[in-house]
Nucleic acid binder design. Structure first.
Length: 481
RNA sequence: GCCGGUAUCGUCUAGAGGCCUAGGACGCCGCCCUCUCACGGCGGUAACCCGGGUUCGAAUCCCGGUACCGGUACCA
């Protein structure tokens, strides 16, 4: 039987790196086992679920290249894929449970429950539901209903027993159902509570493996009880470690970029983010780190997933992005950076493709994100607006303008203009004038690019072309105004 | 509080009783390359949470403690 897994977020925000991480592990498992990856929305929290968020999550997933085979927006044989559209399924299951006595109506209000819980805590008792609606008579229920109360449905827990969860990653984890209470499975608004909705859907959608964040490990006993009450076979559970911020707390806004959108907007490559996320809680057997999606799929085994939470590190993420940037063809690099290039008003679309490719090639090892690209190639399109003051102080001496003018003369008299020819000419000029090559090279870079750092000077000269190079050299050799 | 989980360099991790004088990667430092920066190469910095066992031998197994995370909601 082929595997089926799912990622089931609640659409209450943007796509978070934590969510992307578990979605990725599900996809990786599906792809590496030839199974299906399903996307379902658990939107039963009416107050917090939004359509905008649902769209944002889908867009984020697609941007990352984490395409789902079945589910929201794409459909499939087990739809609909939003819980709010699956009410009949929950009602049917709830009805069965109620009919068999495995579930019962509870008329306590959330406020009453909270009050009792608080009291229990103060008295040092475990804050569990006291079961007061467990054995209500029909008459009592009618009375409560007449008072305008609408009941929630609770699962009637079987007698306490030890219960072990078999987890592919954590191994056998023992719980005692005595720690549990009769929990709500259908809320008074008629929507399923989390544990109930998940079980009904996972069974109906034929999930073979449940791969989710380890914050759900403690919920698993409740779900197992539900599987049993409903007479369903258990799927295989695998809980993956969660991702924490640098302060070891759950990732949040104050940790910098944590929503996938932010990474996109800051010029990160989706394949780099995917690669980085894959390495949080998993590692390739051969220790390689820079991997394509397909390579990860090839090497991926749930058995190699670690048990401990991982702290997200932006430095390594940035390094990884730079690594992936170097793997891109020049034209791809430009296409990916289009947004930033256009925003910087660079006429890159009109440029000769071969030339543009060479320009990009010259700077690619000097940029870490797509957002760095415009600034890195700006001076190839127009003269620098200003010269780096520090560079001026260090490289411009009294005789420098004259040297630059001579350099321009030499370049103009070259029969064949190239990086190599320019370098020969420069070194000859330096020797003749009795100065170090660097004394001409550095000022040249400064007036050509406005800065003191960048690609090999002679490559810059070649890419700029003889005319433009000499124009900038001469402009700079003019007596200062 | 109770229940569950986790614990190797600052961070991500390798490690499943002797191969560990604990390996790799990011970061940081130094050197080399060199027209600068970056890349790259080389070298360095830095860890088995603590305490008890078990064993000839423990980062690896067991127990206790501690820390952190999660659950304990009509949130998911």
């Amino acid at each position: 039987m082929s595997t089926r897994v799912r990622w089931a977020p609640s659409p209450t925000g943007t796509l978070h790196v934590g969510g992307a991480h578990t979605a990725l592990f599900n996809l990786l498992f599906a792809r590496s086992t030839g199974g299906k990856f399903v996307l379902r929305f658990e939107d039963t929290d009416r107050a917090r679920s939004t359509e905008a968020s649902a769209r944002a999550i889908c867009d984020g997933l697609r941007w990352l290249g984490l395409q789902w085979d079945e589910g929201v927006e794409v459909g499939g044989p087990y739809g609909p894929y939003r819980q709010t559209e699956r009410l009949p399924h929950y009602q049917a299951a709830a009805g069965r449970l109620q009919a068999s006595g495995a579930a019962y109506e509870c008329f306590c209000t959330p406020e009453e429950l909270e009050t009792r819980r608080e009291q229990a805590r103060q008295e040092g008792r475990p804050p569990k539901y006291d079961g007061r609606c467990r054995d209500l008579s029909d008459a009592q229920r009618s009375t409560l209903r007449a008072q305008g109360r609408t009941p929630a449905l609770r699962l009637r827990l079987p007698p306490p027993e030890p219960l072990v969860v078999h987890d592919l990653i954590y191994g056998d984890v023992e719980f005692d159902t005595a720690e549990l209470d009769d929990f709500v499975i259908v809320k008074s608004d008629g929507l399923p509570a989390y544990n109930f909705g998940v079980v009904v859907d996972d069974v109906h959608m034929a999930m073979t493996h449940i791969i989710r964040g380890d914050e759900h490990l403690s919920n698993t006993p409740k779900q197992i009880l539900l599987y049993r009450a409903l007479g369903y076979d258990l799927p295989i559970f695998a809980h993956v470690p969660m991702i924490l911020g640098p302060d070891r707390h759950k990732l949040s806004k104050r940790h910098g970029a944590t929503s996938v959108d932010e990474f996109r907007d800051r010029g990160f490559l989706p394949e780099a983010l995917v690669n980085y996320l894959a390495l949080l809680g998993w590692s390739a057997p051969d220790g390689r780190e820079i991997l394509s999606f397909n390579e990860i799929v090839q090497a991926f085994r749930l058995e190699r997933v670690s048990k401990s939470a991982a702290v997200y590190d932006e430095d390594k993420m940035t390094w990884m992005n730079a690594q992936h940037l170097r793997l891109l063809a020049p034209a791809d690099l430009c296409a990916r950076a289009a947004t930033w290039l256009d925003a910087a008003d660079l006429p890159w679309r009109q440029a000769d493709p071969a030339w543009l490719g060479a320009v990009v090639e010259a700077v690619r090892e000097r940029v870490r994100t797509l957002a760095d690209l415009p600034d890195a190639i700006h001076y190839f399109f127009q003269p620098p607006a200003a010269l780096d003051p520090d560079g001026v102080r260090r490289h411009m001496r009294d005789g420098t303008p004259a040297l630059l003018a001579m350099a321009a003369d030499r370049l103009e008299s070259l029969t064949a203009f190239s990086a190599e020819a320019a370098e020969v000419a420069y070194r000859a000029l330096a020797e003749e004038r009795g100065v170090k090559p660097a004394d001409i090279i550095h000022p040249t870079r400064l007036v050509l690019t406005g800065r003191t750092v960048g690609p090999s000077l002679f490559l810059v000269v070649q890419l700029l072309g003889r005319d433009e190079t000499c124009r900038r050299l001469r402009a700079a050799s003019l007596p200062a105004a």
